[in-house]
Write a protein that binds this DNA or RNA. Sequence first.
RNA 1: GGCGCCGUACCCAAGUGGUAAGGGAGCAGUCUGCAAAACUGCGAUGCAGCGGUUCGAACCCGCUCGGCGCCUCCA
Length: 503
Amino acid sequence: MLTLFNTLTGRQEAFEPIEPKKVRMYVCGVTVYDYCHIGHARSALVFDVLRRYLEYGGYAVTFVKNFTDVDDKIIKRANEQGISCDAVTAKYIQAYHEDMGKLGVKSATQEPKATEHIGDIIQLTEKLVAKGLAYTVDGDVYFAVSNYPHYGRLSKRRLEDLQAGARVEVDERKRHPMDFALWKRSKPGEPSWEGPWGPGRPGWHIECSAMSIRHLGETFDIHGGGMDLIFPHHENEIAQSCGATGKEFARYWIHNGFVQINQEKMSKSLGNFFTIREIFEKSEWSEEVTGEILRYFLLSTHYHGPLDFSDQALKEAKNALNGFYDLFHRLKETDGLAAAGDGRLTTAVQRVRKSFADAMDEDLNTSAAIAALQGLRSDVNKMIDKGLSNEERKQARQEFRSLGQVLGLFQSDTWQFNPTVPHAATNIGPGIPLSSQGKHSPTGAQSGPIATVSDSEIEVRIAERIDAKKRKDFKRADTIREELKSLGITIEDKPDGTSRWKR
RNA sequence: GGCGCCGUACCCAAGUGGUAAGGGAGCAGUCUGCAAAACUGCGAUGCAGCGGUUCGAACCCGCUCGGCGCCUCCA
């Protein structure tokens, strides 16, 4: 039974969808005016995993994730670059898909845009005006928080407390300082739509109410986003939606913690943020490997807590992941041993399935779920040491694949392990010069030169080394090993005289 | 001023009343021409500190110290 921490009630609760075996969930996406940073990645990943785990549990999930494509920041960016808002949003929506794709984040069922729901937004706003929950001033429409009795329910704030610390410029036209815009009269040159209150554009929060209601209905199961959205964004969404429909809006509110740098929140003002593409560009590993490292790293902590991003953390994730892929590589090989380790896999699999599900049921405890998979890794390695049949090897690999699928891990067939090099060198061509170039670490520190060397060049060297070994010229063999090691290449000799290597 | 989060070994990190998961790094051993991988063993008598409740607390209560977030756009 899945339990989730619900911000609305402040408790961990058993998850029960409105309709049996069907889940409708909405997650606040991004405002498309810039590239996504690692914090966006965490949020996207957390809800991607929630969605995957629900699907794993047999639920049919309708997953809606929006793009906010009309906003002050977009207008500002468009003016800065002298291009249209549409050009700005199109660019960053595409970038979003590229970046999230590299992280293995599945596309949502629906990915609506605010500008495609202006009609819905206007209707919702009219409804709120009609109910006396909103009022018009000079072509603007504001939500009247004082008229909505449950305001502050999600963020556990009282209006009186908010006023105390409010250092906002008091807009004299607003009835209450916390009243927020549903519809903003547009200034010349801004994106504008014809509305009942004159030409304007949607306010900051109304679009999510409009889009979620449109695609999921007035009441749905799960609404998620980053911690910082609790107030005011989600608080306002609840006020608008419940105010307009008179019904419950979303039942479970899930919020993920921040990615931090040195215990501090990443933010543009501190200049301590990293974009996803920047991390990929600077990574010394392949795109596929980097994506999985990031996923592993981001899931190695419970989603609710903070997570410190650093070079070292990434390196540790890489090392941990290596253990799994080393095992997967072993599982692909045959060693001629009698299958004395057979017969224990079923028990081990049953055990890991249970501990994995127990962990995930406990408010998506991915950290404990990964620990369960580490347990299976250890078990299977022991079985291989004793000798495992090809059939059980396949079963074991399949188990990692199917549980890993929930976390989006362990799907790769290649990773960094390369095919075994045969006994004799086959295609020795002209030597390809080993090139070396400096790489920057994600945190901007120089991590020393990391050499790049082509696969074929490595294989030539290894073939040469295998020849040397055959001639018992171990000195020469060790020289080659050391040479490649200094380039970050590790050689592993197998009992049958062949070798494999990895970066 | 209001609301809230966090502090577990060298590092990361589970655990929220029953006697400290897991990973990384390290050290030792087995194996190996050497190495890598794998396996085995070692590693917090203690969970920021001090009190309290309890047969029993990292987990509950109180206080203190330290770090952070939100209240303004923000994943």
